[in-house]
Amino acid sequence: MARPDDTIAHRGFTPPYILERLREHGSPRQRRFAEATLTHDRSFRAVRGPQPAPPLPEASAPGRPARYIYSAEHSETLPGRLVREEGQPGVDDPAADEAYRWLGATYRFFWEVFERHSIDAKGMPLIGTVHFGQDYDNAFWNGAQMVFGDGDGELFRRFTVAVDVVAHELAHGVTERESGLVYAGQSGALNESLSDVFGSLVKQHHLGQRAGQADWLIGAELLTEAVQGRALRSMAEPGSAFDDPVLGRDPQPAHMDRFVVTQADNGGVHINSGIPNRAFYLAAQALGGYAWEVAGRVWYATLRDSRLSPDIDFAGFAALSIDNADRRYGRQSREQQAIREAWQAVGVRA
């Protein structure tokens, strides 16, 4: 069956249903920047395959990132003007310094926890562009680099402010390199969920938080005080992140009995990701300790499993994660049981 956008590299952070709601219910200015963001996103989705990166040095040495931060200077030209590269001091630009810092935190997480050397595991330079477009309410991975808007300043802050947003986009690159999950339907929701999982784990790793200490919110720092909400998504309680007169109510389901069947958003990739998100949260909570030590390792092993097909569904991913827990910790182990029960709790039968 043909799937929309199978080969498109663009992976945006802000769900289109939020931008569409803003376009319909926002103030005249809010409607303008929502429409502008949607237009930009559609134009990038029309470009198929990874986008070319600027010429850069060879891969960095293992354990060392190679970060290159550019400024689009409010244009839509990528990558833009180079403003900071690896080893250079901070510049008089909070967005550039945040992108540099959080790309470093994400690299450290993947290296220290999984011994993964950058996006491609071979030292690929980490390229980030800030100040993309005018009032651009999104961030995205385009197959070659991460791109961050400044937000509109009324509802959304700049998209570099939150480490999990930056990590979310970098993780799309990891998923693309490892499994090429089709960005539609349940495989697309798994693609989005994996970016949320690793985004949250990077945040927890950076803060030194155990599973029970973490807020499990995605983009908590992104929303301004004008929004009635805590974040864009909640892994602990999908559907509870926001309830706002302009942005609407968080539509994510937490269980398969509320799975959303839709043609929008590539078959609901940002909506139905709430189900595997909650499964990971439940597994991590049951296991305790640092979430990346057991549940995170199992999810990463599953992402890299050669049996993971690009169009895998929730049940297939759940079965592989249970099998990977079995291989690592043993059949009927506490770890395997916790992961099996987490999937069952959200209505996914492996």
Rank of each mutant, 00 (worst) to 15 (best):
A53C: 13
A279Y: 03
M124F: 10
R23N: 13
R177M: 09
G149D: 05
E112Q: 14
F314S: 07
I127D: 00
H25A: 12
W102L: 10
R278P: 00
P65G: 03
Q145G: 07
Q344N: 12
E24M: 09
R278F: 04
D196Q: 14
G90H: 03
P15E: 08
L155H: 12
L194P: 00
V346T: 01
F140T: 00
R233A: 10
F13I: 02
R48D: 11
D6Q: 13
A184R: 06
F198W: 08
W299I: 13
G173M: 04
H270E: 01
D215K: 05
V182L: 14
R31I: 04
E154S: 09
T7W: 11
L308R: 06
D311S: 13
A350T: 13
M146E: 15
D243M: 09
S321W: 11
A236Y: 04
S200W: 15
L19G: 02
M146K: 11
S179F: 00
Q145E: 15
D93W: 13
E73S: 13
A162L: 05
F33V: 13
A350K: 00
A214L: 00
F156I: 00
N272E: 02
G90D: 15
H117E: 07
R230W: 12
D244Y: 08
L247C: 03
K122Q: 15
E20S: 08
S195W: 01
D257Q: 08
V202Q: 13
I119T: 12
Y70G: 05
P253F: 08
R84M: 10
I218D: 09
R3D: 14
E24A: 14
F140V: 02
R157M: 07
A144I: 03
V261H: 15
G296A: 06
A338F: 00
P245E: 07
Y70W: 05
M124N: 02
I69S: 07
N272G: 02
Q285D: 15
F314Q: 07
P79C: 09
A184G: 06
S234A: 08
P94E: 09
P55S: 11
V147Q: 03
G229K: 08
R278C: 04
G289T: 05
K203E: 11
L308G: 04
R334S: 14
Q145A: 12
E98G: 11
E169Q: 11
A279R: 00
D120Q: 12
D311I: 08
D311F: 04
P57L: 12
L56K: 06
V113K: 02
Q51G: 04
Q344C: 05
D150Q: 13
A105C: 12
